[in-house]
Design a protein around this nucleic acid. Structure first.
Lengths: 209, 209
DNA sequence: TTATTTGAACTGACTGGTCAGTGCAAAAAC
DNA sequence: GTTTTTGCACTGACCAGTCAGTTCAAATAA
């Protein structure tokens, strides 16, 4: 168990099957919800036998939990990368936030189903994967909070801002705007959406032109 | 049929039962999701027999749909009232937005389960109540869009803002901040949360004190 | 007041179907 | 020769929706 053959980073046959199962599960669960999605459906869409699902995952819940971990991991890495890149290029903290907004949009553009499913589960209670969700959420939000905190320290942001709440609000702004974009105006370009959010972020809303 | 005894406006026995069922369903579905919640559970929590659920609602889905309509109706009325009150008092459009942010917070404070359930369903596709959801969503968002549009017309907001997208972003800001508040820092006061969001809304984030 | 009737509201055992998870022998991939 | 996948039959729990029968409250009759 825990064989971890090939240090190359995940290209065993098993890994490929798991990936197919993730992809099948993510769209189905985003559309229908976890409980309404059957294991038979997931297997069928992945082009795999039902037994294979259980050979690769202990249960339906476990499959879902690992899917959550996997997806949020990608997002967190992407946010972190955006923040670090901006810092390296000598940008301000506002620039960093803006870069993270873009990174968020790119992520949602690429994985809309995952985002949808994540939002649907995030504030639920009494579910088995609740603790997993809590952990990964915190990892992602912490990146935003970190930038805000550094901005307060270097005087770029007011000392009176509430870091945790402001981070939530910023995440919400991007999340909802992006989900609405994808759901109701999918033809718009990412740049377009990004510039609208940038304007809001930088308070260039009030006042004439 | 359609007896409608007492023109007093809704205090029949039937209405009371429906109300109990709404209350039971909203918390259970918020916690577990629609599919994972059984009709037996709803009936039990409402203190009513299963048959009564089906006497009052055609199906589990219909119960849920009417619950959605009911809840979003309350929110929309509250937002509209906030906007109109501000206008009557001679406030600016920013004041109106601020009042609506507060109205949103008050709503979420009072009906956290409903909000949670609404968010979980909003961006799903392929569900029977999708069209219902679309309609009520638009009613609520339209109130925010209206204020933004009026603000652009009277020169208070830049002509370059994207009304639909900005409205989504504002809704998201309040929604996510409030849900995080309720989930992770429920001891904080509404005023506290409101003032943090006001600061963000008015762009008083950048710059020293 | 008290008895009877009426129809709406409610009850809960039951049905027919669904689905997560199992077991396993044989095939395929590596 | 070891790991992984397949195919498929099977089980036991669970659940949406039904329906024949019961209760309730208000109206009418006595």
């Amino acid at each position: 168990m825990e064989s971890s053959n090939a240090a190359s980073g995940g290209s065993t046959r098993r890994e490929a099957t798991r990936q197919k199962l993730y992809e099948a599960a993510v769209t189905l669960i985003a559309e229908q919800g976890f409980s309404a999605t059957t294991v038979d459906e997931i297997a069928e869409r992945a082009g795999v036998a039902k037994g294979t699902v259980y050979y690769n995952f202990a249960s339906k819940s476990v499959l879902f939990e690992e899917l959550l971990r996997h997806g949020v991991g990608l997002l967190t890495a992407s946010l972190r990368e955006a923040a670090e890149r901006t810092a390296r290029d000598g940008g301000t903290k506002v620039d960093a936030l803006d870069a993270m907004v873009r990174a968020g949009l790119v992520f949602i553009d690429r994985y809309p189903s995952f985002t949808q499913l994540y939002v649907a589960e995030l504030w639920r209670t009494n579910r088995t994967w609740q603790s997993t969700l809590m952990v990964v959420r915190q990892q992602a939000v912490a990146v935003v909070e970190g930038v805000l905190r550094e901005g307060v320290e270097n005087g770029e942001f007011s000392e009176e801002i509430d870091v945790a709440l402001t981070a939530s609000a910023l995440v919400g702004m991007v999340l909802v705007a992006a989900l609405d974009w994808k759901s109701f105006q999918p033809e718009r370009s990412l740049d377009d959406v990004h510039s609208a959010l940038s304007r809001l972020l930088q308070g260039r809303v009030s006042g004439r032109r």
